[in-house]
């Protein structure tokens, strides 16, 4: 099978990062989104991200040009038929993903592999209305995808061995290490990190420590790159809530019951870096402003703003 063109469906942050990672690894990639505006913005973000790489000496302008030449965009779902692999990166809700899989299943040749980037929803369920579920699989990439060398692959109940092997081959081609599980919402990373974020929010809620203190303690204490609240802002506070609710429904494990403050923040539009405010505030460049962690008095007001 020719492994030339990969299609990414969904031009939000994960879609952008995947496009960048895949094109940087030398593959052709088509970014598809039904919204012209989102698509345009998504492609601009990819270019801006490559420029940022050049600015910190990670890339040359010649390399950037070659990478950009491998990226195309489209608003037409039929473009998905051009890929040997399609990866969906829509928001973390079952209905949306199931519907898209149904459409992709009808659009693409039966040999095309259709992957979901879902972290917390069963791939078997997402593919439940597909005619050819054996070619579906979950590939969960971690943000920032161009830098994180991991992909978790989850096989659904009906996923074929060929599909799994092709997904592993692809992961290696773009220099990612594979950890694979069987139809397991949350995989390993999401399942283990969510209770930590949830607990961190509760520690904040109870006034035990400030955002900065919580993140500093976890970061230095366990040698993490980012503390749990910074991580929540990066993932997106709304996405964290989707994840928690999905895993709670899946497991009925109390540790996945979202902390009240998480929901408050989402209602107030405090969705993290993408909205320039979450547990911290961020400048237009996405960098955190100093001393910007949520203060005790804001905690009770987050839902009024």
């Amino acid at each position: 099978m020719s492994q030339k063109t990969v299609v990414i469906y969904g031009a939000a942050t994960m879609g952008q990062e995947l496009v960048q990672a895949i094109a940087t690894a030398g593959c052709e990639v088509i970014l598809v989104d039904h919204s012209e505006e989102k698509l345009k913005k998504g492609l601009q973000k990819v270019e801006a991200s490559l420029d940022a790489e050049i600015a910190r000496w990670g890339l040359t302008s010649g390399e950037k040009r070659a990478i950009m030449s491998r990226i195309k965009g489209s608003t037409d779902i039929r473009e998905a038929a051009k890929g040997w692999l399609v990866i969906e990166t829509l928001k973390e809700t079952l209905d949306v993903k199931r519907q898209l899989f149904k459409e992709l299943d009808a659009t693409c040749k039966p040999a095309t592999i259709i992957a979901s980037n879902s972290a917390t929803i069963s791939i078997t369920e997402i593919a439940s209305e597909c005619k050819y579920p054996e070619r579906t699989i979950a590939m969960h990439f971690q943000s920032p995808t161009p830098k994180v060398p991991l992909v978790e692959i989850s096989r659904g109940l009906k996923t074929s061995e060929e599909t799994f092997e092709a997904a592993v081959r692809f992961a290696k081609m773009i220099n990612k290490t594979v950890v694979s599980v069987y139809d397991c919402p949350g995989f390993i990373t999401t399942r283990i990190i969510l209770p930590m974020i949830n607990q961190a929010v509760k520690v904040l809620e109870e006034g035990i420590a400030s955002c900065e203190q919580i993140d500093t303690a976890m970061k230095l204490g366990f040698g993490l790159n980012a503390g749990p609240l910074t991580l929540a802002d990066k993932i997106g506070v709304d996405t964290v809530v989707f994840y928690l609710e999905n895993l709670y429904k899946e497991t009925f494990d109390q540790s996945y019951l979202p902390a009240k403050l998480l929901k408050k923040l989402v209602r107030a539009g405090y969705k993290g870096i993408k909205t320039s405010k979450g547990f911290y505030r961020y400048g237009n460049d996405g960098l955190r402003l100093s001393d910007s962690g949520l203060k005790a008095e804001q905690l009770s007001q987050a839902n009024h703003q």
Binding site: R56, W57, G58, L59, T60, K147
Partner: peptide, 11 residues
């Protein structure tokens, strides 16, 4: 500048 190894290599 908090550079990674690959960034320093490129530099």
């Amino acid at each position: 500048y908090e550079l990674t190894i690959s960034e320093m290599d490129n530099l």
